[in-house]
């Protein structure tokens, strides 16, 4: 069964120091920018898997690494959200109508993750981020 083989994958066993540094870096970015910690986690953990296994295992582990990053960033984001609320920068009323589409999209995306090839979408998204980042730095 696919699940049992995934459980034996030899990844996510970096040293305690690396995990603490990684969690700390992701947490700091999340608090500072309100996003981004998960990207750091996925990048480092996926690189770790790739270096300590092979391309096939790394490809299979990709979804598990993503789910791990989400499970790390959720509680951290709860704290960041509380701190932003205390700082007076949280628009709860404005967000209320967005709860339903947000939850629906989250569930839909988790299902689609197993069914779609995402390469082209990820590339397009990365390009969009790159261009937007340049615009943002230049605009400010």
């Amino acid at each position: 069964m696919a699940h049992s083989s995934r459980l034996r994958l030899p990844y996510l066993t970096p040293t305690v120091g690396l995990l603490l540094a990684l969690g700390g870096g992701a947490g700091f970015i999340n608090g500072l920018l309100g996003t981004g910690g998960g990207i750091l986690l996925v990048l480092v953990l996926q690189t770790y898997v790739r270096r300590h296994t092979n391309a096939a295992v790394a490809a299979e582990a990709q979804r598990d690494v993503f789910a791990t990053a989400l499970s790390v960033m959720l509680p951290i984001s709860v704290l960041s959200t509380i701190l932003y609320a205390r700082g007076g920068t949280l628009d709860l009323g404005g967000f209320a109508p967005m709860i339903l589409p947000t939850v629906l999209g989250g569930v839909l995306g988790a299902f689609l993750l197993d069914k779609l090839r995402l390469d082209w979408l990820k590339r397009l998204f990365s390009l969009l981020l790159l261009v937007s980042g340049v615009l943002m730095v230049v605009r400010v």
Binding site: R6, G34, T35, L90, T102, D114
Partner: peptide, 25 residues
């Protein structure tokens, strides 16, 4: 950024329900 944090809590929270069942963490 605050709005995005709320967005993440709900979208990732909803995704996690599915991921916890399908992935190894």
């Amino acid at each position: 950024q605050g709005f995005n944090l709320l967005f993440f809590l709900f979208s990732a929270g909803a995704s996690m329900v599915i991921h916890l069942d399908r992935r190894s963490i």
